[in-house]
């Protein structure tokens, strides 16, 4: 599956997210900004849920490019220890079972699985056999 934008994921299998480490300060950001202020840095695949909400209505198009048929999805902030907190989808868990602090792992997700050529966006899922 092709990524929704270049420079978001590493080329390896399974992929990691690509952040940017600011040359001047060492601070890690996501995504890696264009230009030469940051060096690309692969981010940890596993982290913990920092906060979240559920998007209950279809965002306006443009800019939203998800499927016409809308089902609510989770917006998550995931803390990758010692690196950065990234915004991504959270999948594979009932809305009522989401807990801040739960361990999660990167699982790239198709923005529109029905599309002729689905595009991958960053997403995480709870790690099996673990508890928050």
């Amino acid at each position: 599956m092709r990524a929704i934008a270049e420079g978001l994921f590493t080329d390896e299998t399974p992929p990691r997210l690509l952040g940017g480490r600011e040359r001047a300060t060492g601070r890690v950001v996501f995504p890696c900004p264009a230009g030469d202020s940051c060096d690309p840095v692969p981010l940890a695949r596993e982290g913990r849920l920092w906060s979240y909400t559920v998007q209950r209505y279809r965002p306006k198009t443009p800019p939203y490019a998800g499927p016409e048929a809308f089902a609510p999805w989770i917006v998550a902030y995931v803390e990758l220890p010692g690196e950065v907190i990234v915004e991504a989808r959270l999948v594979g868990v009932d809305f009522g079972a989401v807990r801040i602090g739960m361990p999660v792992r990167l699982v790239p997700l198709a923005l529109d699985p029905e599309a002729a050529e689905p595009l991958a966006i960053p997403a995480f899922a709870p790690m099996e056999g673990t508890r928050a």
């Binding site: 929704i4 934008a5 978001l8 995504p31 920092w50 906060s51 979240y52 909400t53 998007q55 965002p59 443009p62 800019p63 939203y64 490019a65 998800g66 999805w73 917006v75 902030y77 915004e87 989808r89 801040i100 923005l111 966006i121």
Partner: peptide, 22 residues
């Protein structure tokens, strides 16, 4: 970047909700 909007994150209510959730 454009993908951030395409993925559905240019929605102010998400931030406010995530902030109070924490």
């Amino acid at each position: 970047p454009d993908w951030y909007g395409e993925a559905g994150y240019m929605v102010t209510t998400q931030f406010f909700a995530a902030k109070i959730m924490r």
